[in-house]
Design a binder for these strands. Structure first.
Length: 285
DNA sequence: CATACTGATCCCATTACGTCA
DNA sequence: GGTGACGTAATGGGATCAGTA
């Protein structure tokens, strides 16, 4: 590619954030309600800048080290080893679920509220001294439970070990905490939501920084392109008669285009500058 | 085997309560 | 004491999947 080609093209900048193709999210996770940020380990995402001359682009990828355990979706009590990339927490949960008949259901009334309560859970609910869903008149009142420090600590400890519970673990934890299993379940759901929210904030900040850096990089490349265009215009008559063999790679560019510059975390290999070693290095150098 | 139904569980959005400045 | 902000327990709805008729 010569100067002529380079000068005919536009500079195209694309900023993106995509998952790696080898870990496609499952169909169920592609709904609008399930953004891929939580179903695919964050470490597999790559913010990228595409900058192209003549339609070809560089892809600058930045990988981010995120503790896989943070999202919690990869942890399951019965699967201490990391699950396959395509397995969702729900899949894992189901794999670990005991015989469904072990958990009876209540389909009438407040179905959602009590649907997963076994007879034992109902017993626990009856005996629970901390929560009373109905007042003396039998009218449902939404009283908000405040967990004690001990309860919170134990729940946190359990969450650290695993972010989802199977029914048996839920039962055991509820018994241990003198709470309803449903309350334990809700606590875990809310806890997962908070974790995700927190992670989203972190991701947002990270992307902002990426965007900033890539914007600067784009600005720099735009400037460089303009300089090359100016140079080409000025030297047009001279280069038109110059044999191609006399054009070679600028040694300065070769030295500086390598990756791993700590000051430029998203650096990309610079386009090589061609120059006439008979005269001087290019203006871009 | 294909289909419909049901139950279980999840996530998400929202509500509402308790606490604190 | 009233109030708004905030944290979080609780609720409701929708989606998905497995088991079953």
């Amino acid at each position: 590619m010569g100067l002529d080609d380079a000068c005919k093209t536009c500079l195209v900048l694309g900023l993106g954030f995509s998952s790696t193709p080898e870990t496609p999210p499952k169909a169920e996770d592609q709904t609008s309600k399930n953004p891929p940020t939580m179903t695919v380990p964050a470490a597999s995402f790559e913010p990228f800048l595409t900058l192209g001359l003549s339609g070809e682009g560089y892809r600058v990828t930045v990988t981010k080290n995120v503790d896989e355990n943070k999202g919690g979706y990869l942890h399951h009590p019965h699967h201490e080893e990391p699950p396959t990339a395509t397995a969702t927490a729900r899949d894992l949960y189901r794999q670990a679920s005991p015989d469904p008949s072990a958990v009876s259901s209540f389909s009438s009334g407040r179905v959602k509220r009590e649907r997963d309560l076994s007879s034992e859970e109902v017993e626990i609910e009856k005996n629970s001294c901390r929560v009373n869903d109905e007042d003396e008149d039998g009218i449902s009142a939404r009283k908000k439970l405040r967990l004690t420090k001990e309860q919170s600590a134990l729940l946190e400890e359990s969450f650290k070990q695993r972010s989802t519970l199977n029914p048996n673990q839920k039962q055991a934890l509820a018994r241990q905490l003198n709470l309803k299993p449903r309350q334990v379940e809700v606590w875990f759901q809310n806890r997962r939501a908070r974790t995700k929210l927190k992670q989203t904030g972190v991701d947002c900040e990270f992307l902002k920084r990426c965007c900033e850096t890539l914007t600067n990089e784009n600005r720099r490349l735009q400037k460089e392109l303009q300089e090359l265009k100016a140079l080409k215009t000025a030297a047009q008559p001279f280069y038109a008669n110059m044999p191609a063999a006399t054009l070679s790679l600028c040694p300065l560019c070769e030295r500086t285009s390598g990756a791993g510059n700590p000051k430029r975390p998203f650096s990309m290999p610079s386009k090589p500058h061609f120059y006439n070693h008979v005269t001087n290095p290019s203006a871009a150098c």
